[in-house]
């Protein structure tokens, strides 16, 4: 049974995008925890960081050539569309949006930029402990490499905020708007508005 009369089930998220999402979530959480509480010799943190860099590269390529719901041009919208969407945000009904909504698109972009920032600052960081030096730290000045450590810490805080915001919004949709956004990211199928 459809949650509302004007809805139909549609295939929104392709398998590669779903795999990307959950692997990225797992690696980002693991690497954040390793950064905060992990061993002093950060070899694993480095390797997970490289894996995340690979995932980000995939997402950028997928955003250019992937299926429509994954493509940047199809979901990044202007201020009017965002304000339009926000007018219905408080309503207690499912959005039935077929993919990233215009407001959520900002979150996607913010997260991608934050993670790219994090990979970049990590690669050039030199914490002056002689064991956890980023592989590209010698490509920048030592002052920049030192500052990059602070930028990397700042990036960690920004990512934490973005992830918590993401989870909070998912819960808001689930309990206030009565729309399950987690299952579609697992199965690929989502209730969307009939046109």
């Amino acid at each position: 049974m459809s949650p509302v009369r004007e809805a139909r089930r549609a295939r929104v998220w392709d398998p590669a995008l779903r795999a990307f999402h959950w692997i990225l979530a797992a690696l980002v959480i693991a690497n954040w925890l390793l950064g905060q509480f992990g061993p002093n010799v950060m070899t694993l943190h480095f390797w997970l960081g490289y894996s995340i860099a690979g995932l980000l590269l995939f997402r950028i390529v997928w955003g250019l050539v992937g299926p429509a719901p994954a493509r940047f041009v199809s979901f990044i919208r202007g201020p009017r569309a965002i304000l339009d969407y926000m007018r219905h945000l408080g309503k207690r009904e499912p959005s039935l949006w077929p993919g990233h909504n215009p407001l959520g698109a900002l979150s996607v972009v913010a997260m991608l930029l934050a993670l790219i920032w994090q990979v970049g600052t990590g690669l050039i960081s030199d914490p002056e402990d002689f064991i956890n030096v980023g592989p590209l730290a010698d490509q920048v000045s030592s002052a920049t490499a030192r500052k990059a450590v602070g930028w990397h810490h700042l990036g960690g805080s920004i990512i934490l905020i973005l992830v918590l915001l993401h989870v909070a919004v998912i819960l808001y949709y689930r309990f206030w708007k009565n729309e399950d956004l987690v299952r579609p990211m697992i199965t690929g199928w989502k209730w969307v508005r009939r046109r």
């Binding site: 061993p39 002093n40 010799v41 914490p127 002056e128 402990d129 002689f130 064991i131 956890n132 030192r146 500052k147 450590v149 602070g150 810490h153």
Partner: peptide, 20 residues
Amino acid sequence: ALQKLGGTCKDCHDDFRKPE
């Protein structure tokens, strides 16, 4: 040996040095 030494550098820098 370097990892053991560097680990003690990091341990102190984490808590007591401004990361800039």
